[in-house]
Amino acid sequence: MKPTDIVEKQILRADIPQVGPGDEVKVHVRVVESGKERVQIFQGNVVSVYGSGASANYTVRKLSYGVGVERTFPIHSPSVAKLEVVKRGDIRRAKLNYLRKRSGKSAKVRELREDQ
């Protein structure tokens, strides 16, 4: 336990599921536009999880009209209304940066099967 945990544990969120690289997630992002708040969904594969404690982040990559888009969120960010895990991925490395160079079928992450 770190000494700063007395502050950090107050801002950690318990309602966020555990996500790891390869998982397909739906991030419900709170967007404030002209004073109004709405929720936007960013769905894609988690390609990296890094940091620890209050400063842990994850990066989600998706294809938007054929263009790769990556967004990084702090795991405990209050601007994420909800985090849903759609699929668990079957992957062999912690950072999926190789997806950037790939396109089409080879840019997919295999789904983790239950019997594995």
């Binding site: 000494p3 700063t4 007395i6 502050v7 801002i11 404690g53 209050a54 960010s77 209050p78």
Partner: peptide
């Protein structure tokens, strides 16, 4: 001094 960390501001920024 205990150490450094981060909290959320009113605008939900770090």
């Amino acid at each position: 001094k205990v150490g450094m960390t981060q909290v959320w501001g009113d605008d939900q920024r770090v």
